[in-house]
C-alpha cells in the first residue's frame, strides 16, 4: 500500500463517519458541524486527485457559504432543547436493505471494470488545469452556453429565494 492509499482510506473513513454523524446526532448545530467535517473530507479527496481548483472551491462554497447558511437557518428556529422523536422509524430495515442491495449491485457491476487495476496516467508537467478550465468555459467550441446558463440558473435561484422570503414577510 502506498502512502496515498493509506491517506485515502483514513480520509474516506472519516468522511463516512462524519456523514453518519450528520444524520444521527440530535443537536442540529452539531449536525451542521459534522457536515462541515464531511465536506472537508471530500475536499481532501479532491486534493488526492490533484484537483486543486475543485478542492478549494469545495471549501469556499460548501464550508464558507452553505454550512454557514445551514447554521443561520438552524438559529432562525426556536430551540427545541430536547428533540425527543425517534431518529429512525419502523421501516428502517427496508432502507438499510435497499442501501446494501444498491451497494452490492454497484460492486458487482464495477467488478469487471478495468479502471480499478489501471494506473492513473501521470499529469504532464506544465499542465495547468485552471488554464484548461478557463479555455473550456470561454471558447465558443467549449462550454460557453452552459457557462452563461449557469449565471441564469444562479439568477433564478436568487429570485426564487427572495420571492419565498418576501411572501413570508
Amino acid at each position: 500500500m502506498t502512502a496515498e492509499q493509506i491517506i485515502f482510506l483514513i480520509v474516506g473513513a472519516v468522511t463516512l463517519i462524519s456523514g453518519l454523524m450528520v444524520v444521527t446526532v440530535r443537536n442540529l448545530i452539531h449536525a451542521a458541524l459534522w457536515l462541515v467535517a464531511t465536506l472537508f473530507g471530500v475536499a481532501i479527496l479532491y486534493t488526492l486527485l490533484n484537483a486543486s481548483f475543485l478542492a478549494v472551491v469545495q471549501v469556499v462554497v460548501y464550508i464558507g457559504a452553505i454550512a454557514i447558511l445551514f447554521i443561520f437557518a438552524v438559529m432562525l428556529t426556536r430551540r427545541q432543547s430536547a428533540e425527543t422523536g425517534a431518529s429512525v422509524n419502523t421501516n428502517w430495515w427496508m432502507g438499510a436493505l435497499m442501501a446494501v442491495l444498491t451497494f452490492a449491485g454497484l460492486a458487482y457491476l464495477l467488478q469487471s471494470w478495468s479502471g480499478f487495476s489501471k494506473q492513473a496516467s501521470a499529469i504532464p508537467s506544465g499542465f495547468d488545469a485552471i488554464n484548461q478550465l478557463g479555455d473550456a468555459l470561454t471558447s465558443p467550441a467549449g462550454f460557453v452556453l452552459p457557462f452563461e446558463v449557469a449565471s441564469v440558473l444562479l439568477l433564478a435561484a436568487l429570485v426564487g429565494a427572495v420571492y419565498l422570503a418576501f411572501t413570508k414577510k
Binding site: 462554497v61 457559504a65 454557514i68 443561520f72 432562525l76 444562479l154 436568487l158 427572495v162 422570503a165
Partner: peptide, 12 residues
C-alpha cells in the same frame, strides 16, 4: 430572518 437572506444572496 434577515441573516438568512444575506447568507443566501452571498451564496449566489
Amino acid at each position: 430572518a434577515q441573516y438568512y437572506i444575506f447568507a443566501l444572496v452571498f451564496l449566489v
